[in-house]
Design a binder for these strands. Sequence first.
DNA 1: CAAATGTTAGATGTCTGACATCTTACAAAT
DNA 2: ATTTGTAAGATGTCAGACATCTAACATTTG
Lengths: 236, 236
Amino acid sequence: MARKSLVGVVADELLDRIIAGEFPPGSSVPGELELSAKHEVSRMTVREAMKTLEAQRILSVERGRGTFVNPLNRWASLEAVLRAASEGVNDASAAIQLIELRRMLETGACELAAGRISDAEIGTLHGYVAAMRKAHDSDDLAAFVEADLAFHDVILRASENVFVAVLFEPLHRVLEKRRTQTSKFRDIQEHAIGHHQAIAEALESRDAGRSRSAMDAHMQQTLDDLKTYVLEAKTA
Amino acid sequence: MARKSLVGVVADELLDRIIAGEFPPGSSVPGELELSAKHEVSRMTVREAMKTLEAQRILSVERGRGTFVNPLNRWASLEAVLRAASEGVNDASAAIQLIELRRMLETGACELAAGRISDAEIGTLHGYVAAMRKAHDSDDLAAFVEADLAFHDVILRASENVFVAVLFEPLHRVLEKRRTQTSKFRDIQEHAIGHHQAIAEALESRDAGRSRSAMDAHMQQTLDDLKTYVLEAKTA
DNA sequence: CAAATGTTAGATGTCTGACATCTTACAAAT
DNA sequence: ATTTGTAAGATGTCAGACATCTAACATTTG
């Protein structure tokens, strides 16, 4: 684990204070000098921390006036918004919203991919389904998750839309922890294998509507699994 | 127009050189000292420029080794990817991909909004449609575009999904120039009014599928308009 | 000879202190 | 009452220094 640099620590702590509501949107954060005193670092270190938050559109720096907090809907960092949205009891709501978002992108990408996917990629998809089946039989969780992720990645690339891939990347990173968590259950694995098989066949038929529906069904199942196994378990 | 700070200039120029292929993904960019000499600024200025690119996941800085260019699919900035994707003759392709992406998010948000939108918001939607009609009659382009944007914004909020709003924000910013461009044509305005009317009515019925279809038809029309009026005109 | 260790060059990380420039508020002059 | 001057406080930039990490090479050691 790489130790965080001072800049990273300062940026994190400042973001925490913002999320905690100490500096609401529109208000200004303390000046660079004040922050450098509070965190016991030099002004340059504070400036670099500010620059990272500014690049994520969390802060707006105005020369001569100060540094201000942007409203949450202008933040450009999914991770930061996720941290803000997971405060308090909203964690379950945030998890559901993330899957809703994933559903939009994955079903959309799948619909596009139907008209663009190559025969070789179809073959690769079937290969990953077989890998999932094998991992399921030998009870290899890591291999199962890896094949699952690779399957979706092929479809994403086949959609031939760079921007979808870019927006999906941070989502992927945020969800990958949860993925391993839900894939632990053997019956969920069985459901997933069936859905992936159906998706691969739909894409093979090059039918955009059918491909979309197949992916949509998979996403619906994922949402149901999350509610049933993860969120319910948490309340118990 | 606010003059760009030196940091912004350095960051922009470095990004340009990266996009031009001078530093391909995986390779390292020149050291801070070398860059500060080339751009005739201090090392701190270069560092702050690097920090902004690092925060957008365009660069990865490794202490003691150097600073490296990330593959494009890991970049977290839609704008930067757009700049990279618009190189050469791919501009038309990039424009189409952007609308494909918008289609996914808007249709998805509309589908969610159908089950969550309030009566007051429905009223607001009809109000904006009326405003579009009025702006069309009085030939007020600015008012037309404003009502159009506000209409979509209401739906986005009604979807009650923070993450969709976050991902949509940079897209909104990128597309708003083009929006004014296409809305110039009076027959496009007429098409748009009809579609917005249909979307509002679909949402009023609280039918998720119908709402999705209505928004999807609108997006299809937008795509067609782009191809017909903007892209065709460019080749002429 | 091979493995462990020391050295050094080059890169990023951080600090200190200074000056420049912009914004705002307030006081003074017209 | 309007304009102008002044000063305080904020960010922007600079210069130079030292610390620390990495990688490559040289050296010592078993």
